[in-house]
C-alpha cells in the first residue's frame, strides 16, 4: 500500500461560467480504519484562491503552513494579493524543492484570476506530488478516488455551467465517486467561488 493512500481523501475542482468550484470529502483514516469525519483538506489561500491538499495528512498541515508562509511573504513584499495562476507556480516550486523526498500531496487549485481589464476569469489547476502542473480547461481531480472522479466528471461536466448548476454537478460527481472508494467519503464540503462571493456548503454523504 502506497503512502499516498495511507490517510485517504479526494479533491475535485471544476470550471463554470464566471465561477469555479472546489470540493472534497471529509474523511481522515488510518488505512481502512476511519478516524475523523471532519478533516477538511480545502484551504482558502486568498479571497479568491482555494487549494485542496489530498494525500498524507501530516503533509497536509505542513504544506498548508508552508504555502501560507510563502504567500504572506509575497503579500508583504509585493503589497498585493497573489493571483491563482501565480499561486500554482508557487505550489509547484515548493513541491519541486523536495524532489527527492517529496510531500505526499497532490494539490488541486481553484480560483478567480484577475485579467488585465480588471475582470475575473475562472482558473483551475493541479500538480503531482513533485510539482508538475496540469492546467486544465474543464476539471481537475486528485486523491484516492481520482479514477472514479475522472469517470463521473467526464460524464457529467459540461461547459459554461452557472454557479448553482456547477454546484450540483461537482457535488454529484464527488459523492458518487467517493461512494465507490473505501478510502474517501464520510461527508463532503463544496466551495463555489464567483468574483464577489464564495459559498461554502457541507454535504451529507453516506457514512459507511
Amino acid at each position: 500500500m502506497s503512502i499516498m493512500q495511507y490517510n485517504g481523501g479526494s479533491v475535485i475542482a471544476m470550471v463554470g461560467k464566471d465561477c469555479v468550484a472546489i470540493a472534497s470529502d471529509l474523511r481522515l483514516g488510518n488505512q481502512s480504519l476511519g478516524i475523523s469525519s471532519n478533516f477538511e483538506k480545502i484551504f482558502a489561500m486568498t479571497e479568491r484562491t482555494y487549494v485542496g491538499l489530498p494525500g498524507l495528512a501530516t503533509d497536509v498541515t505542513t504544506l498548508h503552513e508552508q504555502l501560507r508562509y510563502r504567500l504572506n511573504m509575497y503579500t508583504i513584499k509585493e503589497e498585493r494579493t497573489m493571483e491563482p495562476e501565480t499561486f500554482i507556480h508557487l505550489v509547484s516550486s515548493t513541491l519541486y524543492e523536495k524532489r527527492w523526498g517529496p510531500y505526499f500531496i497532490e494539490p488541486v487549485l481553484a480560483g478567480m484570476q484577475k485579467t488585465p481589464s480588471g475582470a475575473f476569469r475562472p482558473f483551475v489547476a493541479s500538480t503531482d506530488l513533485i510539482g508538475c502542473i496540469n492546467f486544465a480547461k474543464d476539471f481537475v481531480v486528485a486523491g484516492t478516488a481520482s479514477e472514479k472522479l475522472f469517470g463521473v466528471a467526464e460524464g457529467l461536466w459540461e461547459p459554461d455551467l452557472e454557479p448553482e448548476d456547477l454546484f450540483e454537478t461537482i457535488s454529484q460527481t464527488l459523492l458518487n465517486a467517493v461512494d465507490r472508494d473505501a478510502y474517501s467519503g464520510w461527508g463532503a464540503v463544496v466551495h463555489v467561488i464567483t468574483k464577489d462571493k464564495v459559498v461554502k456548503r457541507t454535504l451529507k454523504g453516506r457514512m459507511d
Partner: peptide, 9 residues
Amino acid sequence: SLVQPFLDN
C-alpha cells in the same frame, strides 16, 4: 472504476 460510479448515479 471510471464507469461504475457514473452508472450508480
